[in-house]
């Protein structure tokens, strides 16, 4: 098992290497000059040339790439053009917000998707099944920004049940240790602030989790239906087990397998969706920062974020594959 994990991690290196080339090429194909963006109205040809020389943008592309790669190998992501601070520091400042949002969305999608899928499979072809199908079709076809704005309008503006934006009420001051609002408030025992943070999380998590929810529901339904017709389910019934035990143990354990794979793949979608969700809900995370960096032509920031997201995606899927082996003994990672 350890061998397998090491091999998978080693296999990730060429992937990241290839990705760094593609990213580098794409970013430099984008229109707009960072030096011009930085100088704004004051841009003169002389000043622009000076800035370009400072940033190394006047050198041939391959030299720029090699310099970038050299930095990466030293664990240095470079500095933001705009703030002139190390990108890694800025990233770590915002990453907890994105994790909170993504995990919230995942809990919403899995926690609701699996029971809904099981319910639909148990009442296949019935009214309940039809309703679940409609809900999941809606979930998958409504874009995040439409759903997000609609949720804000209904629950924040009209009903005033939940806050419309931000991670925490600006009037509440908390001390940051880990930059996770929910963790830091708990560490300080500040329960009202914790619930305030939680209430801020609900709407964006629902908006972001709607597509994974739809997919997980559909996959769970199909998987449960598939497994229900297996011979070993009949064997389990023939043993005299209760329907509860047959469903919970013999069917669900097997039905989990495809669902787990899909959950792993959804993490990629969640990270991408976080960009939109964080922008709509003014959520201080990596997603909103990405949008800002693109607008600012802050090349190095955009490059680094995509690279880190790719790394996260690889690691999450490795974790999923390992989790798979624990559920399914037929898979032996030798």
């Amino acid at each position: 098992m350890t061998k397998y994990i090491i091999r998978r991690l080693l296999a990730a290196i060429p992937v990241l290497f290839g990705l760094s080339i593609i990213l580098f090429a794409f970013i430099h194909l984008l229109p707009g000059d960072p030096a011009v963006a930085l100088l704004g109205q004051h841009a003169t040809p002389e000043l622009t040339a000076e800035i370009r020389a400072q940033l190394g943008l006047d050198q041939p592309l391959w030299q720029q790439y090699l310099a970038y790669l050299g930095q990466l190998l030293h664990g240095d992501l470079g500095k933001s053009i705009i703030t002139n601070r190390p990108i890694i520091d800025e990233f770590l400042l915002r990453f907890p917000g994105t994790v909170e949002l993504t995990v919230g969305a995942l809990i919403f999608a899995v926690g609701l998707g699996i029971p809904l899928g099981r319910y639909a499979a148990r009442h296949v072809q019935g009214f309940g099944d039809g309703m679940v199908t409609v809900i999941s079709l809606l979930g998958i076809s409504i874009p995040i920004f439409v759903l997000g704005l609609t949720l804000q309008y209904i629950f924040a503006v009209q009903l005033k049940w939940l806050p419309a934006s931000g991670r925490l009420d600006p009037r509440i001051a908390i001390e940051y240790h880990t930059n996770f609002v929910l963790i830091d408030t708990l560490l300080d025992g500040n329960i009202p602030a914790f619930f305030n943070g939680l209430s801020h999380l609900i709407l964006p998590a629902i908006a972001l989790g709607s597509i994974p929810l739809a997919i997980i529901t559909r996959i769970t339904r199909a998987s449960v239906l598939d497994v229900t017709n297996e011979d070993y389910v009949r064997t389990a019934r023939a043993k005299g087990l209760s329907e509860r035990r047959v469903g919970g143990r013999h069917i669900m354990r097997n039905a989990w397998l495809p669902v787990v794979t899909v959950i792993g793949l959804q993490v990629g979608g969640l990270l991408a969706g976080a960009v939109i969700t964080e922008t709509i809900f003014s959520w201080n995370g990596v997603g909103r920062w990405t949008v800002q960096a693109i607008q600012d032509h802050d090349y190095f920031v955009v490059q680094s974020i995509i690279l880190i997201f790719a790394l996260i995606f690889l690691v999450v899927n490795l974790v999923v594959d390992i989790g798979y082996a624990f559920i399914n003994p037929r898979i032996r990672y030798a």
Binding site: E230, D231, Y232, R234, T235, A236, R237, A238, K239, G240, L241, S242, H250, R253, N254, I327, N328, P329, R330
Partner: peptide, 23 residues
């Protein structure tokens, strides 16, 4: 349920698929 598997037990045709692969 209390008779099934206790007083009356059944052996199926397909031993390859009649056992749960995960246990």
């Amino acid at each position: 349920r209390h008779i099934r598997g206790k007083d009356m037990a059944m052996i199926f045709q397909e031993p390859l698929t009649a056992l749960n692969p995960l246990f």
